[in-house]
């Protein structure tokens, strides 16, 4: 099931033995989730799953409801209706277990700019109850992996946008989650930084078996072998493997498939909750 790479291989045996695989479940399961801000409906009966060790793109334009969905999955918002489960753990009923299995990279930068790279990682580790020595070792390994080991003691403020994103991804992996959520992580980055980050995350999927939900509005970040969920005006219009979604829409590529899928939707953004 999970192939750990060198950076993550230091996982103690006790951690592994405490996992008793006794049932099957998707990495992420969203079941008929709706959400409204007052009278404005942001999500409407959204359902989909993220398969284990898969790269699933959550494709939607700005305002489609992606960030709201992320806030619900990460329990920043309470669920108004529906159910969200992370590897079988209900985020509402057992948030601790669910959050422990999840790493998150939010759309806005969430690093402490005046603290060093290592200090940022140690703070995150502490929030997950990981002791200092273990956290330092994991932090070093992850910084090594993202090529920022020599900057460990530099202030985050001195990093480039792409480096900050890589650090945020490293931080999200520090507690060894099984599901990684990224909310438009390449926004504002140059072409090379974007490519680096996409290939890094894809490596995590193939090498470590981490499941990824990648929210984006950029079609070129999706490949035909990915899974995709098309979110538009708070509703899921299509889901499944990209090639299949393209074929079902009778289109040539994901871009034109998206255009066809959304062409007929004239539903206003605001409706009664």
């Amino acid at each position: 099931m999970i192939a750990h790479d060198a950076a993550i291989a230091a996982e103690p045996a006790s951690d592994i033995t405490t996992r008793q695989d006794h049932a099957v479940a998707p990495a992420l399961s969203i079941e008929t989730v709706s959400h409204a801000y007052g009278s404005r409906r942001a999500l409407s009966e959204v359902s989909f799953t993220v398969a284990p060790a898969s790269f699933t793109a959550l494709l939607g334009l700005n305002g489609a409801g992606k960030s709201t969905l992320f806030s619900l999955i990460t329990r920043l918002f309470g669920i108004q209706s529906g159910r969200i489960r992370i590897i079988g753990h209900d985020i509402g009923a057992t948030p601790g277990e669910a959050l422990r299995l999840m790493g998150v990279v939010f759309q806005p930068r969430t690093l402490d700019l005046d603290l060093s790279l290592m200090q940022n990682l140690l703070y995150h580790a502490a929030l997950h109850g990981i002791a200092r020595r273990e956290a330092t070792a994991r932090g070093r390994a992850l910084l090594e992996r993202i090529g920022l080991a020599d900057r460990a003691l530099s202030k985050v403020r001195d990093l480039s946008g792409g480096q900050m994103r890589r650090l945020e991804i490293a931080r999200a992996l520090l507690h060894r989650p099984r599901l990684l959520l990224l909310d438009e992580p390449t926004v504002g980055l140059d072409v090379k930084a974007r490519a680096d980050i996409i290939s890094h995350v894809r490596q995590l999927v193939t090498e470590q078996g981490i499941s990824v939900l990648w929210a984006t509005h950029l079609f070129d970040e999706i490949t035909s072998s990915d899974d995709v969920v098309v979110l538009h005006q708070g509703c899921v219009l299509a889901g499944g493997q990209v090639a299949r979604v393209i074929a079902e829409a009778g289109a040539q590529d994901i871009n034109s498939a998206f255009m066809r899928l959304t062409a007929g939707t004239t539903k206003p953004r605001s409706s009664e909750a």
């Binding site: 099931m1 998707p26 398969a51 898969s54 590897i87 299995l101």
Partner: peptide, 10 residues
């Protein structure tokens, strides 16, 4: 979509 085993950490 496919499924995985439940990770029932402590």
């Amino acid at each position: 979509m496919s499924s995985t085993t439940i990770d029932s950490r402590r």
